[in-house]
Design a protein around this nucleic acid. Sequence first.
DNA 1: AAGGAAAACTGGTCATACCACTTTCCCGGT
DNA 2: ACCGGGAAAGTGGTATGACCAGTTTTCCTT
Lengths: 248, 248
Amino acid sequence: MGVRLVEPVKRTRAYEQILQQLSQLIREGELKPGDQLPPERELAKAFGVGRPTLRQALTVLSAVGVLEIQPGSGIYLRKPMSEVPGTAGQAMAMLLMTEKQNLRHILELRIAVEGSAAYLAAQRCTAEHITELQGAYDALHDAFKNRGVAIQEDFRFHAKVAEATGNPVFLKVMVSLADLFLQQFESTTRHLYYEPDRVASNLREHQAILDAIVQRRPEAAREAMVRHLERVGERLDLAERTLKDRYS
Amino acid sequence: MGVRLVEPVKRTRAYEQILQQLSQLIREGELKPGDQLPPERELAKAFGVGRPTLRQALTVLSAVGVLEIQPGSGIYLRKPMSEVPGTAGQAMAMLLMTEKQNLRHILELRIAVEGSAAYLAAQRCTAEHITELQGAYDALHDAFKNRGVAIQEDFRFHAKVAEATGNPVFLKVMVSLADLFLQQFESTTRHLYYEPDRVASNLREHQAILDAIVQRRPEAAREAMVRHLERVGERLDLAERTLKDRYS
DNA sequence: AAGGAAAACTGGTCATACCACTTTCCCGGT
DNA sequence: ACCGGGAAAGTGGTATGACCAGTTTTCCTT
């Protein structure tokens, strides 16, 4: 036979089956967020595998942020969107590991995702969402005024926007991207970003986003968000140029 | 002390360090796509860990699609965006595992991402990109005419659009989302989707996207892509309603 | 030189053991 | 009766060694 007419049988590895079973238990609500799983030794016996094999599955789930494994304590199912910075970004980092990527590539996707998020948020955010959004902005405002640096608060504001879409997938992907962005950001030009003269501008941009959403003007919200992130990119360019100048 | 003043020390597990080291080797180009890694036993010795521990790291990398592990043969570094349907979607599925999500949530994000992808593609695709895009469309056209079903070709067309952005992060995220969409799609209403009367309409939508990109009209390309995916959603609703009727 | 079988190699899995840490519980002191 | 405090049990983290089922290589036979 010239071409391949049959598919080679796929040998499903044991840990893959465990992965699949656990996924199903989670999806069907058999395992609820915050639940503690049985000890590894029990689980291994239940699945009929050895402990190392079980650990492969658990390790994968832990690496992507589904499980939280605490030595000496136990294995817990993370709550959706647990605000543990670094976890979501870690998973996205692995997803993108083999792709040649830089901050600008990630930022470009953030613009796409968060622009639409702002649009949808303005379209259908609830009263509670607005309250939370307002609170996040106030916190951002205070942090800016007091400390001048507010990476955490900035992050949370963006997360609240995504949350207001009511779409958990939007939220998760946005958070993962933003988290990864900040991680790479930190290791390069963080110290140059938050210069005093940029704080006011940054704050105004956030307020424009908030206002547009509260006024329920989707297009304006998208534009405000896109403009804000584009400014972030500009400041990034500036910072990198400054760095380069220093070394020349 | 009232509040936590110190951060608890993070005990870095051995497999996490391996993960980090391997990531670095990949990012720095020390390991190139397609490369074969040393055997597990050697790697374990090199890292100074036991084989089970090393396997945890390898398993994670394999689960997110970075490595391809072939029993009896060896461990290989996957090429970026290797067109292995199911792999990218698997990683995204784990990222979203704990989120309550359905097809509509994923589709909404696809609209955001792919709409912008079409926009950027129209803005800066090269001649080669256009050729590939055209080729993908032709393949889609033929498959539709001949078999009436063209999930693979449909997928590849969308991937080519994302590829034309020149942004690997866009491509990867888009492919992951679309792949996940198709996976869940398959298990629910696939058989109702490709009905003969919808084929022509679907094909026209794709052509509109292609034309707008070739003519380098970003806004038109975005609109065409958004409209197309919204139609996909409508057909999905229709299919689900049909299913529900059958059970009532 | 070609074919084929055996040997070597590779990943997949298991069993056991030990370590470090956390949690629990019981005992002794107050 | 209450409250430490320390031992014991429980938990995840890791190492070792072994065996299996495949694949790949080697080398002998024809």
